[in-house]
Design a protein around this nucleic acid. Structure first.
Lengths: 341, 341
DNA sequence: ACTGGCACTCGCCACCGTTGAGTGCCAAGC
DNA sequence: GCTTGGCACTCAACGGTGGCGAGTGCCAGT
C-alpha cells in the first residue's frame, strides 16, 4: 500500500512535471515542496512508486515522469477540480452571450474552451436523439418535389429534398402537414416512428405513395441525423506539445479530422452519470493516435439531462484540475445559454 | 533578359527542389536533366538567376533554392496545369457522388481535395449573395413567435426566430407567406430589399408592425448570412512541411482557424476572371502566418458564374502543376454536382 | 560562349572528454 | 524500523575538433 507521504510525492512529481515539462529529481522535489524529509527518503519513495508503475524514468539517471497510471491516480485521488476565478467566469459569460444561433453558440464555445485551456477544444452539437420536435414543415418546390424541414427544440434545423412518385396537391399537403405536426410536435425523436405509423392509411389511395415517401424520409432524417456533428478548434495549441514534433502531433491531427472517432470517444465517456466529467488518460483512449493525449469531457444540456458532450484534447502532461474546472464551467454556461433560447 | 536556357535551368531547379526538398547544385542538375551543357555553364546561369532574385542559397557553398519570385516565374511562364489521370478523375466522381446534402458535398470536397493534393484543403460554402431565393417559409411556433426559414437555390437553409410585437393570426400569416414568395422566389438576394419594400402597406394596420419585423428579419438574414462560411481539412498534411516544426506550422494553424482571414484570402483571389485560378505565393499572401505558404484557389459554381471559392494551402515548395490540376478538376466536378441537385 | 580545372567555403557528422544532475546502495543515527 | 548523509556510478547534454564532401567562384584555354 502507498503511504500518505508517497502519495504526496506523486502529487508533487505530477505538479512539477506539468509545470516544467522536465523529468523531476529527488533534490529538486524537496526544494520546491516542503515534504519535511530528505532527498534520500524521497528517492526510496520514488523507487517504490516506480516499482508500482506510477512513475518511470526516461533513461537511467534522469528524473522521473508520471506514467498514465500515475496520472490516473493523481486525477482520481489527489487532485480536485480547480474552480475558475471570478474574472474568468465573467469572461465566459461575456464571450458566450450575444450568440445569435446554434452555429454561433457552438463556434463561440469552441473558441472559448480552446483559449481557456490552451488546448484543442471539441464541442458536439446538441444531439437530436434526446431532443424533441418543435415543428415539421413541408414545402412544395415543384409539382412532384417537396422539401421537408425539421425543427428541434435545441434550435437545430434539418432539411431534406423529397421526390414524390406522383404530383401532390396543395390540399393533401396541408392536410399531411397539419396531422403530422399535431402528432409529433413536442415528442421525442425516439417516439416519432410509432406515432406516425398508421398515418398513411387515412389518405386517399392515390396520395398514399407520396405520403409514405414523406414519412420514410422523415424517419430517415431522424435516424441519420442522430449521427452527430461536432466542431473543433485550437489546433494551433498542439504546437506547444513537445519538442519532437512531427511524430507527436501528426497522429493527433489525423484523429481530430476523423469526426467519427471523436464522436465515439465522447460517446464512450459516459461513466459516472450523464453529466459527470470523464477523464481518459493516454492509452485509455482506444484510438492509437490519441495514446499520448488525455481527453477531458463532460455532458451539457439545456435541462437536467445531457444532450451532448464537450471537452478538450491535450497532452497527458496537462493541468488536470485547471482543465477540468474550465471544461465544467463552460459546459454549465452553455447549458444555460441553450435553456434560455 | 533571361535566355531560354536560363529559364530551363530555373525550371529544373524548381522541379528538383520540389522533389527532394534539398538545395540543388549544379552538378546534380546536369545529371538529372539533359540540359546539354556542363555544370560550369549552369553555375554561371545560376549566378545570373540569383542576381535577378529568382533563386537564393541558404548559405555559402550550398545548392540553390527558388525564391518566391522564382516560383512566380515558374508558375506564370514555365509550368502548365497537369491534367489528372483517368483513374483520378474517376475517383473524384465516385467520391463526390452520393452526397446527400450541402454539408455533405462540402465535407466530401474538402476530404477529397486534401487527399488528392496531400495538402490543406479549404472550401467555401456556396455564397448566398449571388444565389437566388427558392422559398421563404414562415412558421408559427407560438402566438407571438415565428420562425423564418429561407431556402436558396444552392440548397442552403437559414432560419431565424422572430418575436412579434403582437400576436399574428394564421390568416394574415398565410397571406404574408404567399405574397412574400410570389415576389421573391427566383430572385437574387440583392434584389429582394427593393421587391418587398412596400409590402407592409397592404396589410391591416394592426398587423403592420409584425409584418415589418418579419421583413426586416428577412433582410437582415440576407445581409448577415452573406458573410460566408467555410470548411477546412487535411491539416495533418502540415506535418510534412519541414523539419523545423513548431515555428513553421504554428502560424499556419493559427491562420487556418481564423476563418475570416481565409475568406478574405479567397475573396481577394479574383484576378483573371471569376472562375480563373489564382496562385498566391509566399509573401504575396497578406497574412503573415501564411508567408511561407502558397495558396491555389479557384471559383466554382453551379452555373457559368462562380458562387464560391475553393483551394489548397501548402508550402511554397509544392508541386504547382499537379496541385493546380487537382484544384481545377475538383472545382469542375463540384460545380456539376451542385448544378444537378 | 562554353568547358575543365582548381582553390576555397562551410555545413554536416562522427568522435571525445567534461560536466552535472540524478540514481542506488549502505552504514550510521534517531 | 524509518530516515539520513555519504559515496560511487551512470548517462544525457554540451562544446570543441577534425575530416569529408557538396557546392561555389574564378580563370585560363578552346
Amino acid at each position: 500500500m502507498l503511504s500518505e507521504r508517497r502519495l504526496e510525492v506523486l502529487r508533487a512529481i505530477v505538479q512539477d512535471y506539468v509545470g516544467t515539462e522536465e523529468p523531476v529529481g529527488s533534490k529538486a522535489l524537496t526544494e520546491r515542496h516542503k515534504l519535511g524529509v530528505s532527498p534520500a527518503t524521497v528517492r526510496n519513495d520514488m523507487a517504490v512508486l516506480e516499482e508500482e508503475g506510477f512513475i518511470a524514468q526516461p533513461h537511467t539517471s534522469a528524473g522521473r515522469i508520471p506514467t498514465d497510471k500515475g496520472y490516473r491516480l493523481f486525477v482520481d485521488r489527489l487532485a480536485g477540480v480547480k474552480p475558475l476565478s471570478a474574472a474568468e467566469r465573467r469572461a465566459i459569460q461575456n464571450f458566450l452571450d450575444g450568440a445569435v444561433d446554434l452555429d454561433d453558440v457552438v463556434g463561440r464555445t469552441v473558441r472559448l474552451l480552446a483559449q481557456l485551456t490552451r488546448q484543442v477544444a471539441v464541442v458536439q452539437y446538441p444531439s437530436l436523439s434526446r431532443s424533441t420536435v418543435r415543428h415539421v414543415e413541408l414545402l412544395s418546390l415543384a409539382p412532384a418535389r417537396l422539401m421537408l424541414v425539421l425543427i428541434t427544440d435545441t434550435g437545430r434545423v434539418e432539411q431534406r429534398m423529397i421526390d414524390c412518385p406522383a404530383p401532390f396537391g396543395e390540399n393533401p399537403l396541408a392536410d399531411l402537414r397539419a396531422r403530422l405536426n399535431s402528432r409529433v410536435v413536442g415528442r421525442r425523436f425516439a417516439d416519432v416512428p410509432q406515432l406516425v405509423q398508421d398515418l398513411a392509411e387515412s389518405f386517399d389511395l392515390e396520395d398514399r405513395p407520396a405520403v409514405a415517401v414523406v414519412l420514410s424520409t422523415l424517419l430517415e432524417t431522424l435516424v441519420e441525423e442522430t449521427e452527430e456533428r461536432l466542431m473543433i478548434g485550437g489546433t494551433a495549441n498542439l504546437t506547444r506539445f513537445g519538442h519532437d514534433f512531427p511524430l507527436t502531433i501528426r497522429p493527433v491531427l489525423e484523429a481530430l479530422e476523423e469526426h467519427v472517432v471523436l464522436l465515439k470517444l465522447l460517446g464512450e465517456a459516459k461513466e459516472s452519470g450523464g453529466m459527470g466529467m470523464t477523464v481518459r488518460i493516454g492509452h485509455e483512449n482506444a484510438h492509437e493516435g490519441l495514446n499520448a493525449t488525455s481527453v477531458v469531457s463532460v455532458g451539457y444540456g439545456s435541462g437536467d439531462e445531457a444532450v451532448a458532450k464537450l471537452g478538450v484534447v491535450g497532452p497527458t502532461r496537462m493541468d488536470y484540475p485547471g482543465t477540468m474546472g474550465a471544461v465544467r464551467a463552460v459546459a454549465r454556461y452553455v447549458g444555460q445559454i441553450l435553456a434560455e433560447s
